[in-house]
Write a protein that binds this DNA or RNA. Sequence first.
DNA 1: AACTACACCAAAATAACATTGGTGTCTAAT
DNA 2: ATTAGACACCAATGTTATTTTGGTGTAGTT
Lengths: 224, 224
Amino acid sequence: MQSKTKSALETLRERLTNGHYALGARLPSERSLCAALGISRSGLRKVLSRLEAEDLVWRHVGKGTFAGPRPALGSESFRIVTSKTNPLEIMEARLMLEPHIAAAAAQRASFQEIERLALCAKRNHEANDLETNEKWDVLFHETLVIATRNSLLIALYGGISKMRLSDEWCLRKQQWITPENWESFKKQHGSVVQAVRERDEAGAEKAMHEHLISVRQHIQSTYL
Amino acid sequence: MQSKTKSALETLRERLTNGHYALGARLPSERSLCAALGISRSGLRKVLSRLEAEDLVWRHVGKGTFAGPRPALGSESFRIVTSKTNPLEIMEARLMLEPHIAAAAAQRASFQEIERLALCAKRNHEANDLETNEKWDVLFHETLVIATRNSLLIALYGGISKMRLSDEWCLRKQQWITPENWESFKKQHGSVVQAVRERDEAGAEKAMHEHLISVRQHIQSTYL
DNA sequence: AACTACACCAAAATAACATTGGTGTCTAAT
DNA sequence: ATTAGACACCAATGTTATTTTGGTGTAGTT
C-alpha cells in the first residue's frame, strides 16, 4: 500500500524542518533508516529522491545522506581541480594574489627571510636544468608568502605551488622559456628582493606585477 | 674508525651537489642506505644530521629523507590552518582576492549567474537570523567566484568560505553586526550586483573593495 | 501498479598493516 | 673514557585491505 511510504516521507520532512536533523547533519544510512521506518529500501529511496529534489537533503555515494541543500563548492577536492585548470588560469590567480603578497612581505619579512629570498633567486638563475630552476622559483615565491605572516594566505598559496609542480606546467614552461627571458626573470626577481629589503611596499608590488605580466605574456605566446 | 663515516659524508655530499640525488628527490631509507654505504645506522644518522644542518637534506618521520632544503609549506594541512587563522587574516586575504574576482566576474558572468547573485543579496538582507544571513552572504561571494570561470580561483576561494563558516567567525560576527551596518552591507552588495550587471569591471572592483574595507573596519573595532 | 527482497557495483570512509626517521641502551673495540 | 656498532622500541606516515555507503537493476509479491 502507498500509505507507508507516504507517512515515511512526512516523518522525514518533519524531522528535517523542525531541526531533529540539524542543517548539514548526517542522516542514518539508507539500510538502517528503512529498517527503522519499517519500509523497504526501494521505498525509502523514492522518499529520499523526493526530499533531495526539494533541496531538503543531499546525498553522495560512500559518504551518506545529509540534511540541507548541497554545498555549492568545497565538495571538490584539489586533485580534481588539477585536471581542470591550466597555466593561464594559474597566472590569473597569481596576478591577483602575488603583488599584494609582495607588498605585505616587504612590510613584515624578517632579515632571515630576506636572505632566504636572495638565496632562492641566486640558486634559481644558477640552475642549469629546467626542473631545478622551476623548483627554486617556486621556493622563492613560497618564501615571499610565508613572510606575510598570514597563515590563511600561506595555505591558499600552497594550492598554487602544487599546480606549478604538475607535469603540464613543466611541459608548457619548456615551450616558452628562452635564454633571453631567463635573464629578464633574473632581473625581475632581483627587483623584488631589493624592494623587500628596502621595505618598499609599493615597489615590491609593482615589481611583482611586472614579473608576472612578463611570465603570462610568454605563456600566452605559446597558445597562439 | 672515523674514516668510514667521514668518507660516507663526502660520498653523500657529492651525490647531493652533482645531481645524483635531484632536488626534492627521496633518498633511500636510513636502514638500506647505511647498509649500502657499509656503515652503521648510528654513524649514518650523524652524517645525515650534518647534511641537514647544511640544508642539503631534510627529514621527516614516516616520510623519509629528501634532497634540498626543507619545503616551507605544503606540509601543513588545511585543518591545521583553521586553528591558526583569525578574522583579520581572512579579511586580508579577501581584500587581495575579491576585488579582482569581482572585476573578472563582471567580465564573464552569465545572465543566470547575475540573477543568482541578485537573489543571494536579496535573501541575505531578508534573513532575520544571523546564521541564515551569513549563509546567503557566503553564497553571494561564492557565486561571484564561480562566475570567474577560473577553476583554480574557485578551489582557492573554497578555503576562505570554510573559514567563514567556522565557529570563531560566527561568534565574532555577532559582536560587530548591527542594524546600521547590516543596512550598509545591503547597499554595498547592491552596488556590486549593479556593476556586474553593467559589465563595469572597474566599478565592480571598486564596490567590492569598499565593501570589504567596511567589513574589516567593523571587525577591527571589536579587537580594540 | 506499488512495494519488497535481493544481488551487485563503484565511491568513499575506515581499519589494519608496513615503513620511516627519532631515541635510547647496551656491548665491543681502541 | 670515548667511539662506533647492534639492537629494541616509539610515533608519524604511507600503503593496503576491508567495510560502509549510495546507486542500479532484477525478480518476486501483494
